[in-house]
Amino acid sequence: MKTLLAFSFLACTVLQSMGQDVTALLRKAEQASIQHASTMDMAITNVKPRYTKVINMRTWSIGNKHSLAVITSPKRDSGLTYMRAGDDLYMYSPRIDRVSKLPASMLMQGWMGTDAQFDNVLGQSSFVDDFHHDYQGKVDVNGAPCHLIACTPKDDVAVAHARVNVYVSVQHGGWVRMQFFNRRDQVSQQMDALRYGVMDGVLMPVEIGMTGKDGVQRTTMEVLQWRKRPDLTEAYFVPSRMTQLEP
C-alpha cells in the first residue's frame, strides 16, 4: 500500500513538473510578442475572389489586454480606431465622431472582412492561464521541427475555442502555428507565423497568415515596424484617447 502511494505520488510529481515545462514553453512562445509595451505599424492584406484590399494601421499595446489600433489607409477607412482595454472593446468612427462600445463577443468575429479576428488584431489571447496544456510530442511544420502543445480550456473558463493546438519552434522557441478548433472539432481558424524577424532587438513573427474555416489562406498580417514603448501605461488606453489620434 505504501509503495503504491509512493508510486502515485511520484507519478503526480512527474506529470506536474512536465506540465510546468509545457506551460513555460508556451509562456516563452507567447512572450516574444507581448512582453514589451510597444507601438507597431502593420499591413493587413486580404485577398478575396472579387477584390484584394490592403489595410494599414498603427497600434499601441501593453501585454495582451491593452491595445489601440488606428487605420491609416485606405482613405475611406482611415481614422477608424479600435481599442481593447481589459475586457472592454471600443470603436471610434470619425464619420459619426463617436466612440462606440462593442460587445466582448466581437473579439471572435471577423475583423473588417478579413479572416483575422478582433482578438488577433487587438492583442492575441493568452493560453497560459486559462487552458490545460498537454505536450503531444514533436512534429514538423513546413520542414522545421516543432513542439505540439494541445490546449484545452479549464472547466470554469468561458472561452470561444473548444481547443487550440500550438506549435512551438524547437529552434527559436517562438510559435509557428496555432490551430483553433470549434465545438465540432473542426479547424475554425489557423494562424501561421510565415516569417520571423528581429524588430527593435526582439525576435518576433513579422508575417502571419490567417486561414479561415474553408482552409484557404486569404489574410496576411505583416509587421512593418515595431518599437518598444516603455513609457506607455494602462492609463493610455482610455476611450477619449481614440478621438485624439491622427491617422
Binding site: 472579387r50 477607412d77 459619426i96 463617436r98 473588417m112 472582412g113
Partner: peptide, 16 residues
C-alpha cells in the same frame, strides 16, 4: 441614431 455595420468589402459601415 448611430448605425454601425459591416460595409462593402470589409469597410465598416457607420453613420448618423
Amino acid at each position: 441614431l448611430i448605425a454601425l455595420g459591416q460595409g462593402f468589402r470589409g469597410s465598416p459601415a457607420s453613420g448618423r
